[in-house]
Simulated scan of single mutants.
Amino acid sequence: MTLTLHVDGERWRAHLRGTAELYDGIIPVIKGNGYGFGNRALARRADWLGTDTVAVGTYAELVDVLPRFGGDIHVMTPWRPFWADTVRTERMYDPRVVHTVSRVEDLDLLRTEAPEGTRIVVEGETSMARHGVDRHALTSVADNLGRLRLIGFSIHLPLSEDNLAEADSWAAAFEASKLAPAVSGTPVFTVSHLTDREVRTLAERRPGLVVRPRVGTALWLGDRGAFRVTGLVIDSHVVERGERIGYRQRPMPVGGTVLIVSGGTSHGIGLEAPTSASTMKQRATSVAKGGLGAAGLALSPFTVAGKQRWFVEPPHMQASMILVPAGVAVPAVGEEVEVDVRMTTTTFDAVDAP
């Protein structure tokens, strides 16, 4: 099976350099499936960019990033006592790892488990309401640092059009708290989901902080024209209207050709995140898709002769069955067809990145 990510290497590298220059002090985010490229590849690419720090999502991701990136690694998932059951201690407390603290009650055990001088950042609870210390608890954190080394503060913001006000509010709260004097050197303030202009504005407003943006999607996937995805046609069959085929033996609504194309559920094909529809048009589209799904019809991400084609049935683990209506030019076995995928949920068989 070959679901392939094709990368225009020169164009992608130019985009990475341009984005790194745009975001002063950028901290590349490397997590999950590595935005389709794989965490190992992104760790090497971050080293190539010359940044001194990257951010990973979880402690488990250290196994791929630590050997391939020479700088510091900020783990964004907050430290919890049970992570030690799943991650090797020497990796978890590598001197290059920076931990996130989001609960006052974790500090006692972290001080006991971690080597003296282990670096931490404190995360504030933003309107995301995901992780973080309430701003009224910042004093309690400062009083319980002990032998841990505080280097700064961190916030994770929602996907809003204007996050600057909330970021500035948290920066003010941090500077006014007992945490700021507890930092040795200039405090680092790491933020997510700010535009490059907002990052510069925040840095100008808060000269006492080193504002560093964590950037993932805009860095790695900001120029979608730099890559494309293809699936390989591995078989084809002419079918008649009403003929029953596939696992579920559904009758064909029209005659044509069924293509068996590489790319299935193990790659992430046909898997969808919950809808984030917020406008009436988006909701209407979701309702229409739901109605088609109830009727057993689903549009595939595979494009043949310039149009997305329908699934014959839900994708299989490693391949999909696609219906090409009669009268449409059919690609031959061995040819590639274009696939429109969500990069953060797709696993590729091969990455062609010269």
Rank of each mutant, 00 (worst) to 15 (best):
G306Q: 09
V215Y: 09
S278Y: 05
K307T: 14
W220K: 03
I245F: 10
Q249M: 07
S286W: 08
R244T: 08
R214A: 00
G255A: 09
I322G: 14
G255I: 05
S266M: 10
R309C: 13
S236C: 12
R241N: 03
V211E: 02
G208R: 15
R283E: 14
L219M: 04
T257P: 12
G246V: 00
L232H: 04
L292T: 08
D235V: 04
G222L: 04
P274S: 05
G290H: 15
L323I: 01
R224A: 15
P207F: 03
V261A: 09
S266Q: 13
P274E: 07
A273S: 11
L323S: 01
P314C: 10
G256V: 00
V254K: 15
Q282Y: 02
V238F: 07
H267V: 06
L299W: 06
S320W: 04
G222S: 02
M280H: 07
R309N: 04
Q282F: 00
P253W: 09
D223F: 02
V238K: 14
V239S: 03
A295P: 09
A226E: 08
K281C: 06
H316A: 06
M317C: 10
G296K: 04
E313H: 12
E204S: 12
F302E: 11
E272P: 04
A277F: 02
Q282W: 02
A277V: 02
S276V: 12
E313L: 14
A288S: 14
A288C: 13
P213H: 08
V324P: 00
T279I: 00
R214F: 02
R224D: 11
V312W: 06
G208Q: 13
H316K: 10
A203Y: 03
M280C: 11
